[in-house]
Design a protein around this nucleic acid. Sequence first.
DNA 1: ATTTGACTAAAAAACAATAAAAGTCAATAC
DNA 2: GTATTGACTTTTATTGTTTTTTAGTCAAAT
Lengths: 194, 194
Amino acid sequence: MAEVEIRNIIVNAATQFFSKFGFSKTTMSEIAKHTHKAKGLLYYYFNSKEELFNEVLKQELGKVKTGLGKIAVSDADPLIMLRSYLLLHLKLLNNALTYHETLKADFFEKYHFVKNVRDDFNHFEREQLSIILGKGKGKGYLDITDITSSANIILMVLHGIELSLFLQDKYAEYEFTLDELSTVLISGLKFQKK
Amino acid sequence: MAEVEIRNIIVNAATQFFSKFGFSKTTMSEIAKHTHKAKGLLYYYFNSKEELFNEVLKQELGKVKTGLGKIAVSDADPLIMLRSYLLLHLKLLNNALTYHETLKADFFEKYHFVKNVRDDFNHFEREQLSIILGKGKGKGYLDITDITSSANIILMVLHGIELSLFLQDKYAEYEFTLDELSTVLISGLKFQKK
DNA sequence: ATTTGACTAAAAAACAATAAAAGTCAATAC
DNA sequence: GTATTGACTTTTATTGTTTTTTAGTCAAAT
């Protein structure tokens, strides 16, 4: 079998276990057994359990990036784009189970090995939001001077509520409120006749 | 000495220790020693360590309530009131150290014994915000239909960012951004000529 | 070049013994 | 009778030890 296929089989099995049981309660032997391969093979493709987890998180966030990336390239109304972005961000991340674990770990300053992937994702989000905000500003829809600063505000709110939503499983409960929140935020950034 | 005075001496000493070392790393003996009283006396005034901690938290949040309570009763511009409320909420809670501990504990579903005091505070906040939003709506400043729902959005944002601000000590870092955030939120709730 | 599985080293879980803390209460002071 | 004490008991946490589990290795096989 092609090298890349086996690698994927391993990553897929790892994703199942990590998503269900988390990093420490998943064993490499379990993953190996489930793929009907020897444990040593996992170490042929990945240097460590951490590296494998990292790859799982990377692929998970990769899918989120793909979803979110489609918004900024479209030529829809920037206000609608921004709204879609906020809601899709929360919706997609709500299902990113390994990401949830790294969120939680943030509080204990563990999981440093995952820093690069997380940083990359944050950078991506900053970029996408800047594009959207830039378009909105260009077309005179948004009343913002400093795009970076506005992006920071939005990200602060998103990251803030992520913790309560995902780690305390309140997404379903708050879904409707999130809709209103995005409306308020966008309305707050909108150009207003004083 | 009057019964209530001794009680206060105990609570004050307890506040110092709990704020500095947290609930579990503070011992009742320490508190007793610091007040130059026997440990048994603490149990004459409080049934348990948990009850004492509860009292400390109650007084801490009581001060926050006093500060925040002054805003809604003033007859300032509701928009300014709302802005002051958001910023003061974060500023005062940033110094509420025992509250921080209960925030953290939320993630582990510990500290259930503190639920009443926390619920009371949440109820207070909901009330204050409703008053302010009500005034804003009445005077035609705010474009909101459901006051409860708007209060929920604001509280969700506040609670969300509290975790990152207080538990990861980012208040100083984000202070400026918070100012902008409150501007955006208020602007988003403001009545707009479409 | 890929895969195996017995092997080693390191980390976690289980257990027992010990220390430290919460909480009690009969005696004492006011 | 109310407030206070401090020695005492009970619970909970800590420490050190053993056992088990798991991450990670590697020589041999495919």
